[in-house]
Design a protein around this nucleic acid. Structure first.
Lengths: 88, 88
DNA sequence: GAGATATTTTGATAAATTTCTAAATGTTTT
DNA sequence: AAAACATTTAGAAATTTATCAAAATATCTC
């Protein structure tokens, strides 16, 4: 639960695309998986990595699990990066 | 030369610490290596990854190679992240 | 409760990463 | 030009990662 985990999660293109999809709002694992050629198991694995990195949240609703962005962690990464570019 | 390479570079704690050291100004490979327990070869490898990711620049000066931050790439990553947190 | 659906977990394999030691390259100094 | 210094490159071992197929778990529907 540090920057290592978060940056590693962000380093995969499929995972970044998942985050992009979630910009529009929460989606179930199946809805996310439907957008990619990979198997459901693979997408589930990517979701687990994003969740462990703190980038997404999950909420079970009956048969489905809905995933959404966890903006607070994005803010933390943003702060870290800002300390480089300009002052602050 | 994409976000994948850059985020993967940022995922290593030693590499993030190298970037922190370079905040204060350019340093030679040896000066950087002196701050870590790893061998010079290992640090050289980390520097190569940071360079390939676009996060640092290198300038040869005689016997030494000086490394410095490449702020423009930090800005690009910052922009990508900003598209998540707030407006725009 | 049986069957269908949604998702994760397990087990396996191939590819990538980290780190080291040793060797190579290039530059300075004597 | 030889020796010393700074750094990288090559080769190898241990670890981690991405992916799939198959099995497991949980929930819904009939």
């Amino acid at each position: 639960m540090g920057f290592a985990e978060t940056f590693r999660a962000l380093s995969d293109p499929t995972r970044r695309e998942i985050l992009n999809l979630l910009k529009k709002g929460p989606l179930s694992a199946g809805e996310i998986g439907g957008q990619f050629p990979s198997t459901g198991a693979t997408i589930s694995h990517h979701l687990a990595i994003l969740r462990q990195a703190g980038l997404i949240l999950d909420q079970k609703q009956g048969k489905y699990i809905y995933y959404s962005l966890n903006l607070s962690v994005f803010e933390e990464v943003l702060s870290w990066l800002k300390s480089f570019s300009k002052e602050e």
